[in-house]
Amino acid sequence: MNWRRLNHSLHRDIGFLCIGLTLLYALSGIAVNHMHDWNANYSIEQFNLQIDPLPPGVVNSTQIQQILRQLGETRISKKHFQPDPENLWLYADKRMIRIHLPSGNVQAEKSQRRPFWYRLNFLHLNHAKQAWTWVADIYAGGLFLLALTGMLLLPKRADLKRRALMLSLSGIVIPVFFLLLYY
């Protein structure tokens, strides 16, 4: 087997091997980049409600039960926190309820994991650690080999050779340009 054939086979097989992980990292990469515009990990629904106003201060358990009754909560939650005398935060079943006592304004928030995206980001951001770090390192090595073998896939036709060179150079120049621009 000559080196061209070996290089081509390596490029093809590593390419196949990298398909799944490339899709994972690419999809999650877009999601993570745009986290400020769209929360890929959770879908969060917010509801505004109104209850009777309460005087500011430390809220007791009787008042909390009254609030929960007004909110139609059947499950009485003992988990609560007051960030200041005017606000009360309640926690119940994946929900957080923020109450402004003097106005009686209630903001309820229900969060739900997006199963697909959460898991994708979990792997992309290496939250798994342990053996997954090795998988990610091997994948990075695979991409490195893919680039190296890709550079040696020189086409025989002169016009294609020129195109290959231009595209390869663009891929190098683009990050360098942004580095010079922002760094």
């Binding site: 959770y42 988990k79 200041d84 119940a92």
Partner: peptide, 23 residues
Amino acid sequence: KPFEKIRVKVKDGEIIFPLEARG
């Protein structure tokens, strides 16, 4: 004590606290 809380900040991506941890 009432109204007391402390912020815990981690490096982005190093630790990811789940939203379900509230409460």
